[in-house]
Amino acid sequence: MSSNATCSDMFTLRGDLGAPSFLPWIARHAGRLGIIGRVTAASADEVSLLVEGPPDLVDAMELGVSLGPIDVWVESIKRERLLSRP
C-alpha cells in the first residue's frame, strides 16, 4: 500500500472498561496519532471504537488502547477491517 493509504477498522474492546477516564483517554490518544478514534458504543465491559487512518497508525492506536489508563484493564481487542483505500 502506498504511504498515504488509509483504512478504517472497528475495534471491539472487552475487559474492565468502566472507569470514566477511559473515553477521554481514547480521544486524546487518537489526537496524538492524528487519526479518527470515535467510540460508537460503550459499557462497563465492552467498548466499540471506529478507528480510521494510515494502517501503521491504526496499529499504533490498538497498541496504545491495549494499555490505556491505569484504572482500566483491556482483556482483548477484536479488529474488523471495514474499509481500506490504497
Binding site: 483517554w25 490518544h29 501503521d56 496504545g64
Partner: peptide, 9 residues
C-alpha cells in the same frame, strides 16, 4: 499508561 508516549508496532 502510555499517555505521554506514542508506541508503534
Amino acid at each position: 499508561d502510555p499517555g505521554m508516549e506514542i508506541p508503534t508496532r
